[in-house]
Amino acid sequence: MAEQSVPDNLGNDAAAPLVPDPEHGYGPAATADPVTDVPPVGARLDLPEAGEWKRVSPKYVMVEIVGTVVFLVIVCAAAGALWLLLDQTWAAWVGAAIALVTLISLAFEPRRVRSIGYQLRADDLLFRRGIMYQRFVSVPYGRMQLVDITRGPVARVLGLADLKFVTAAASSGVAIPGLAEADADALRDRLVELAESRRAGL
C-alpha cells in the first residue's frame, strides 16, 4: 500500500494545543466597527492542500433533470387542478412561483453536479459538494460500518449508481451520487479493503 508512506505531519503533534492565529479573532479591542474588516467580497471555503478531486459522471445531470421535471409536472398538475376545477386562483400563482424557482435552480444543475467531488487520501475519504451551500467532509476509512450502493430507475438506464459510506454517526452523510456502475463497484471494494486494514472499533 503505497499510500501509507505519506507522512501525516499533523497527527503526531496532536498533544500540543493549537495556538490561535493572532491575525484574527481578538485583536486589540480598540478596533472600530465590527463590520470594517469585512472585505467587499467574501471568502469561499476551499481546501488548498487537497489533491485532485475525482468528479462524478456528467451524465448524473440527466438524473437530476428528470427528477426535477417529474417534480415540476406534479406541482403543475396539482396547481392546475386547484385552479381550474376548484376555481382557486391563488394556486396558479403559487404553482407558477414554485415552477419558476425550480427552473432557475435547474439552470445551475450542471455546476452543482460538477461541484460534487471525492478523493481517497492516505487515511481518509474526502468528500465535497455544493456551490451556494458548500460542505466538506473527511471520514477515516476505519470508521466505515458499511458501504451501500443504490441504483434509481433513471440512473440504471444511464448506467449510474449512488454510493453511500455509512459510519456510526448519522450526520456524516457521505453519499457520492452518479458514479459509473463499474466505478461504484470498484470504489466499494477499494473502500472495504482500506477499512479492513484500518479497522477501528466503534
Partner: peptide
C-alpha cells in the same frame, strides 16, 4: 474563521486517524 476552519478540518481529520491507530 474560514482559514481557521480549514486548519481545524485538517488537524482534526489527521488527529482522528492517529488516535484511532
Amino acid at each position: 474563521d474560514v482559514d481557521e476552519a480549514v486548519r481545524m478540518f485538517e488537524a482534526i481529520s489527521a488527529g482522528a486517524v492517529a488516535s484511532a491507530d
